[in-house]
Protein backbone atom coordinates (compact mmCIF):
# COMPACT_ATOMS: atom_id res chain seq x y z
CA UNK A 1 0.00 0.00 0.00
CA UNK A 2 2.79 2.39 0.92
CA UNK A 3 4.70 1.40 -2.19
CA UNK A 4 1.60 2.06 -4.26
CA UNK A 5 1.30 5.63 -3.00
CA UNK A 6 5.02 6.37 -3.10
CA UNK A 7 5.07 5.27 -6.71
CA UNK A 8 2.20 7.56 -7.57
CA UNK A 9 3.89 10.40 -5.75
CA UNK A 10 7.39 9.96 -7.19
CA UNK A 11 5.89 9.42 -10.61
CA UNK A 12 3.97 12.66 -10.42
CA UNK A 13 7.02 14.51 -9.15
CA UNK A 14 9.12 13.22 -12.06
CA UNK A 15 6.49 14.52 -14.45
CA UNK A 16 6.58 17.95 -12.84
CA UNK A 17 10.37 18.02 -12.98
CA UNK A 18 10.21 17.26 -16.69
CA UNK A 19 7.66 20.00 -17.23
CA UNK A 20 9.87 22.39 -15.33
CA UNK A 21 12.69 21.72 -17.76
CA UNK A 22 10.63 22.32 -20.87
CA UNK A 23 9.22 25.43 -19.21
CA UNK A 24 12.72 26.83 -18.79
CA UNK A 25 13.62 25.95 -22.36
CA UNK A 26 10.54 27.79 -23.55
CA UNK A 27 12.03 31.12 -22.56
CA UNK A 28 15.47 30.56 -23.97
CA UNK A 29 16.33 32.13 -27.31
CA UNK A 30 16.09 30.11 -30.48
CA UNK A 31 19.24 28.48 -31.75
CA UNK A 32 18.37 27.74 -35.34
CA UNK A 33 19.31 29.56 -38.50
CA UNK A 34 16.40 30.34 -40.83
CA UNK A 35 18.27 28.91 -43.71
CA UNK A 36 17.25 30.56 -46.95
CA UNK A 37 16.96 33.94 -45.21
CA UNK A 38 20.16 33.68 -43.23
CA UNK A 39 23.22 31.74 -44.23
CA UNK A 40 26.31 30.72 -42.38
CA UNK A 41 29.78 31.14 -43.71
CA UNK A 42 31.42 27.86 -44.38
CA UNK A 43 34.43 26.93 -42.33
CA UNK A 44 37.83 27.39 -43.95
CA UNK A 45 38.30 23.69 -44.54
CA UNK A 46 34.83 23.01 -45.82
CA UNK A 47 34.88 20.53 -48.64
CA UNK A 48 32.52 21.36 -51.45
CA UNK A 49 32.96 20.11 -54.98
CA UNK A 50 36.38 20.71 -56.50
CA UNK A 51 37.31 23.79 -58.42
CA UNK A 52 40.30 24.73 -60.53
CA UNK A 53 42.79 27.16 -59.05
CA UNK A 54 43.91 30.03 -61.21
CA UNK A 55 47.37 31.48 -61.45
CA UNK A 56 48.24 35.15 -61.87
CA UNK A 57 47.25 35.19 -65.51
CA UNK A 58 43.89 33.72 -64.72
CA UNK A 59 44.70 30.40 -66.31
CA UNK A 60 44.64 27.04 -64.69
CA UNK A 61 47.76 25.81 -63.01
CA UNK A 62 47.08 22.28 -64.13
CA UNK A 63 49.85 20.54 -66.05
CA UNK A 64 47.60 17.70 -67.18
CA UNK A 65 49.50 14.99 -65.37
CA UNK A 66 46.33 13.00 -64.82
CA UNK A 67 47.13 12.01 -61.27
CA UNK A 68 43.84 13.30 -59.93
CA UNK A 69 41.97 11.33 -62.54
CA UNK A 70 43.75 8.19 -61.41
CA UNK A 71 43.37 8.87 -57.71
CA UNK A 72 39.65 9.40 -57.84
CA UNK A 73 37.89 6.37 -56.45
CA UNK A 74 34.69 7.13 -58.26
CA UNK A 75 35.96 8.04 -61.72
CA UNK A 76 34.40 11.47 -61.63
CA UNK A 77 37.18 13.35 -63.32
CA UNK A 78 37.75 13.44 -67.07
CA UNK A 79 40.43 15.71 -68.35
CA UNK A 80 42.28 16.35 -71.54
CA UNK A 81 45.07 18.63 -72.58
CA UNK A 82 47.26 19.38 -75.52
CA UNK A 83 50.60 20.89 -76.17
CA UNK A 84 50.17 24.23 -77.87
CA UNK A 85 52.52 24.81 -80.81
CA UNK A 86 55.81 26.05 -79.62
CA UNK A 87 54.78 25.64 -75.99
CA UNK A 88 56.60 23.42 -73.58
CA UNK A 89 53.90 22.53 -71.13
CA UNK A 90 50.63 20.87 -71.82
CA UNK A 91 47.60 23.12 -71.49
CA UNK A 92 44.32 21.98 -70.07
CA UNK A 93 41.55 21.90 -72.62
CA UNK A 94 38.88 20.01 -70.77
CA UNK A 95 38.21 19.28 -67.11
CA UNK A 96 34.90 17.64 -66.42
CA UNK A 97 33.68 16.72 -62.98
CA UNK A 98 30.81 14.31 -62.66
CA UNK A 99 29.48 15.49 -59.32
CA UNK A 100 26.75 12.87 -59.23
CA UNK A 101 29.40 10.30 -58.33
CA UNK A 102 31.80 12.41 -56.30
CA UNK A 103 32.13 11.40 -52.69
CA UNK A 104 34.05 14.51 -51.64
CA UNK A 105 36.88 12.36 -50.39
CA UNK A 106 39.61 14.75 -51.32
CA UNK A 107 41.90 12.23 -52.99
CA UNK A 108 42.15 14.38 -56.09
CA UNK A 109 43.18 17.49 -54.19
CA UNK A 110 45.77 15.58 -52.23
CA UNK A 111 47.20 13.85 -55.24
CA UNK A 112 47.77 17.06 -57.15
CA UNK A 113 51.25 18.24 -56.41
CA UNK A 114 50.77 21.45 -58.35
CA UNK A 115 47.97 22.88 -56.27
CA UNK A 116 45.78 23.10 -59.30
CA UNK A 117 42.54 22.04 -57.69
CA UNK A 118 40.88 22.97 -54.45
CA UNK A 119 37.58 22.57 -52.70
CA UNK A 120 34.93 25.17 -53.34
CA UNK A 121 32.68 26.51 -50.65
CA UNK A 122 29.53 25.81 -52.56
CA UNK A 123 26.77 23.92 -50.87
CA UNK A 124 23.63 25.26 -52.46
CA UNK A 125 23.43 22.45 -54.94
CA UNK A 126 20.01 21.19 -55.76
CA UNK A 127 18.45 20.39 -59.04
CA UNK A 128 15.91 18.12 -60.62
CA UNK A 129 18.18 17.33 -63.54
CA UNK A 130 21.16 15.05 -63.45
CA UNK A 131 22.89 17.05 -66.16
CA UNK A 132 23.23 20.02 -63.83
CA UNK A 133 25.88 18.16 -61.93
CA UNK A 134 28.26 17.57 -64.78
CA UNK A 135 30.50 20.51 -64.10
CA UNK A 136 32.82 21.88 -66.71
CA UNK A 137 35.42 23.26 -64.38
CA UNK A 138 37.34 25.04 -67.08
CA UNK A 139 34.26 26.96 -68.09
CA UNK A 140 33.57 27.81 -64.47
CA UNK A 141 37.09 29.15 -64.19
CA UNK A 142 36.58 31.36 -67.20
CA UNK A 143 33.26 32.56 -65.89
CA UNK A 144 34.87 33.46 -62.62
CA UNK A 145 37.45 35.52 -64.43
CA UNK A 146 35.01 37.51 -66.49
Amino acid sequence: MVAYFTEIFTGLMSLFIGMGITFKEFFKPTVTVSYPYETLTMSARYRGHIELVENEEGNSQCVVCGLCEKACPSDCITLAGEKPEGGKKKVLTKYMLDFTKCSLCGSCVESCSFGAITFSKEYNLASTKKEDFYFDLLKRLEERNT
Binding site: T22, E25, F26, K28, P29, T30, V31, T32, S34
Partner: peptide, 13 residues
Protein backbone atom coordinates in the same frame (compact mmCIF):
# COMPACT_ATOMS: atom_id res chain seq x y z
CA UNK B 1 4.70 27.80 -32.17
CA UNK B 2 4.70 26.50 -28.63
CA UNK B 3 6.45 23.30 -29.56
CA UNK B 4 8.99 25.29 -31.49
CA UNK B 5 9.67 27.55 -28.53
CA UNK B 6 10.15 24.58 -26.25
CA UNK B 7 12.57 23.10 -28.75
CA UNK B 8 14.23 26.46 -29.31
CA UNK B 9 13.21 26.87 -32.91
CA UNK B 10 11.13 29.73 -34.35
CA UNK B 11 8.25 27.62 -35.66
CA UNK B 12 6.01 28.80 -38.50
CA UNK B 13 7.01 32.41 -39.02
Amino acid sequence: RGAARIQRRPGPN
